[in-house]
Design a protein around this nucleic acid. Structure first.
Lengths: 136, 136
DNA sequence: GGTATAACTTACGTCAACGTAAAGGCTGTG
DNA sequence: CACAGCCTTTACGTTGACGTAAGTTATACC
């Protein structure tokens, strides 16, 4: 009974708030990632939609596909029925977790290596600048 | 004068060594990511190509596009001329580094959150199993 | 009522990163 | 020579994630 603030956003406000296009939001709705309510023909995005969109955008930054994100969203917000389905989704989540940890480790390695390369690059640039200044 | 071991691989050996398809290798050549030498019509992949392919595959795991990878490869192996070009490529590298570090941090956050969700998922599964066993 | 604004639907276009099919060389072997 | 086994090129197909254009509808304002 504490939920009376259904602050809904229309599509324009939603786009501005999350830096996406209307097409993207409609696309996500078509893919069942978002479920805006309808007022007449217009879409109204609820708090739930905004929470989901945040997760979608973060998921994308990690290279998840929209389909994988949909699965994870189901895991996040699933109720109490359909245990076997939950079980399956849970396993997907665990697999992705392992993947993400491995990716993080590789990312750390790559960051270190890239730092080395950049140090090397600085030296090259510096010596080039000393050697001659003419190149604008 | 210490480089006389040009151990080259044909396309099949290269594919087996790195788990890619011939199409992929030809595609990377077309995109100027690899430069196999030709013996008649056949491609021969040198040590240099193998080093580059390793970097390509790693780059892909981090979500770099092939074009971005090409830029980074140039940074890795660029000689001593063309300072302005190096400068530019260096900047791209630095931007990517910042990006990668940010992504790593977000990844760590997401890993923690996902772990929480999975813990929660375990509880749901457990209680469901206790509650009833019938659902095959 | 006219029109501007914003949202809508439908549907074809695009881009990356290959897949896949077709047709054609080389090279060795019976 | 015929044929198999690799390799080649050319070129059209595919998938995901939207972009973009065309035409429609609803609301707001003058």
């Amino acid at each position: 009974m504490t939920e009376q603030t259904d602050v809904t956003l229309n599509i324009r406000e939603m786009c501005d708030a999350y830096q996406v296009t209307p097409r993207t939001l409609r696309f996500y709705e078509a893919k069942e990632l978002l479920f805006p309510i309808r007022e007449g023909q217009k879409r109204l995005f609820t708090k739930r939609d905004r929470a989901r969109l945040k997760l979608i955008l973060r998921g994308k930054r990690f290279g998840f596909s929209l389909e994988e994100i949909r699965q994870l969203l189901d895991l996040y917000h699933m109720g109490d029925q359909q245990h076997t389905q939950i079980q399956r989704t849970y396993e997907i989540g665990r697999e992705r977790l392992v993947d993400m940890e491995r990716q993080r480790d590789e990312l750390n390695e790559a960051i270190e290596e890239l730092k080395e390369q950049l140090k090397w690059g600085e030296k090259v640039i510096a010596s080039a600048k000393n050697g001659q200044e003419a190149a604008e």
